[in-house]
Amino acid sequence: MADARSIILHEYPTSPYAEKIRLALRLKNLAYSRVEIPVIMPRPDLMPLTGGYRRTPVMQIGADVFCDTAIILRELEARYPMPALKLPGHEGLAQMVAGWTDGRWFQSSVAVIFGEMGDKVPEAFRKDREALSGRPFDVDAMKAVAPMMRDQWRARLMLLEERLQGGQGAGAGIYLVGMKPGLVDIHAYMNVWFMHQNVPDFVAKCFETADLTKAWFERLQEFEGQTPETITSKDALEIGLNSAPRLVAATTRNEPQEFAPGENVAVAPDDYGQVWVEGELVHADSQRIILQRTSPEAETVHVHFPRAGFLVRRA
């Protein structure tokens, strides 16, 4: 049974961003528990832990809550360094690649998928995604651009093929950087997995001229890892309630906005799902910011965010 030491992943099966973390957990062969959250809001047991952050996935370890795949991957690598995913050649590059995979490539994936199946999407899902993105969920517009987005999607896939062709020596065509899978592979895998789940015939067609990428994708799919335990959202909330956050030095260093520990600040993504989470600043550096929050449901939690891709302001 999950406890304060367990990795708890709040996710749903069809989330491509959650699949990033599931792949990382498989590659590291880590035991974890999962909470299957609803695809759309509300998520009443998760909000006291995150302070309102609504993107998927969220990772919880006791009373420490990690929002966004970037900080989740960083924390997994810090706590469980073996086997390593931050391999030589992946340092820094992985997050640069993530900016591309999570941005322009993901946008083309969404346009292709919902241009294909948007008519089947329930109205509640459309309204939820409009609230998340701040834009209309316009199925007709996605249908209109879908042929062009298929071109864009294939062009991006073929960049992986070029990278695999350019591998050095005996490692050519194995993984994107060397002969072992790492963070760059995890980020690049996401869109291929997402499309393969939803429009497999199109992906198969693209693979006809991308043999190395097809083999790379299939190789990553073969990692099995450990079968997670499923717990309820109330179980996870109770674990947070009965845990204490991990001790961390209350420090800031070279902050451009001159934040100091103890200040009340607010954090939100800089692109979509822009819900501002407020709390007392505990720690901030160039890659992470930690807020302390209290609530009757969860008592005291530390909520962790990455810096790149997130805005911070005084509350």
Rank of each mutant, 00 (worst) to 15 (best):
residue 276 W to A: 12
residue 103 G to A: 06
residue 274 Q to R: 13
residue 307 R to L: 10
residue 217 F to M: 01
residue 46 L to N: 11
residue 69 T to W: 03
residue 158 M to I: 05
residue 163 R to W: 15
residue 285 D to T: 09
residue 214 K to Q: 11
residue 120 K to H: 07
residue 174 I to P: 00
residue 87 L to Q: 10
residue 270 D to G: 02
residue 257 Q to M: 15
residue 162 E to T: 09
residue 239 I to N: 08
residue 213 T to M: 08
residue 229 E to S: 00
residue 272 Y to K: 13
residue 251 T to H: 11
residue 158 M to T: 01
residue 69 T to L: 02
residue 42 P to H: 15
residue 77 E to K: 13
residue 197 Q to K: 03
residue 122 P to V: 14
residue 110 V to T: 06
residue 172 A to I: 11
residue 185 D to G: 08
residue 71 I to L: 03
residue 29 N to L: 02
residue 136 P to A: 13
residue 222 E to P: 00
residue 248 V to D: 09
residue 301 V to I: 09
residue 163 R to P: 02
residue 135 R to I: 05
residue 74 R to V: 04
residue 106 F to Q: 12
residue 211 D to E: 07
residue 7 I to S: 01
residue 211 D to Y: 02
residue 259 F to Q: 08
residue 60 Q to L: 06
residue 120 K to L: 07
residue 104 R to F: 00
residue 134 G to P: 09
residue 23 L to V: 10
residue 252 T to S: 13
residue 81 P to K: 12
residue 110 V to D: 00
residue 301 V to N: 09
residue 276 W to R: 15
residue 12 Y to M: 00
residue 119 D to H: 10
residue 76 L to N: 02
residue 117 M to K: 15
residue 292 Q to N: 08
residue 214 K to N: 08
residue 208 E to M: 05
residue 74 R to P: 00
residue 196 H to G: 00
residue 181 P to H: 04
residue 21 I to L: 04
residue 115 G to W: 04
residue 202 F to T: 09
residue 275 V to N: 12
residue 27 L to R: 14
residue 33 S to K: 05
residue 66 F to I: 00
residue 75 E to S: 04
residue 275 V to W: 07
residue 237 L to S: 01
residue 24 A to G: 07
residue 147 P to Q: 03
residue 10 H to Y: 13
residue 271 D to Y: 07
residue 289 I to P: 03
residue 89 G to S: 09
residue 275 V to D: 06
residue 15 S to K: 14
residue 62 G to H: 07
residue 264 N to Q: 11
residue 311 L to Q: 15
residue 30 L to M: 03
residue 280 E to V: 04
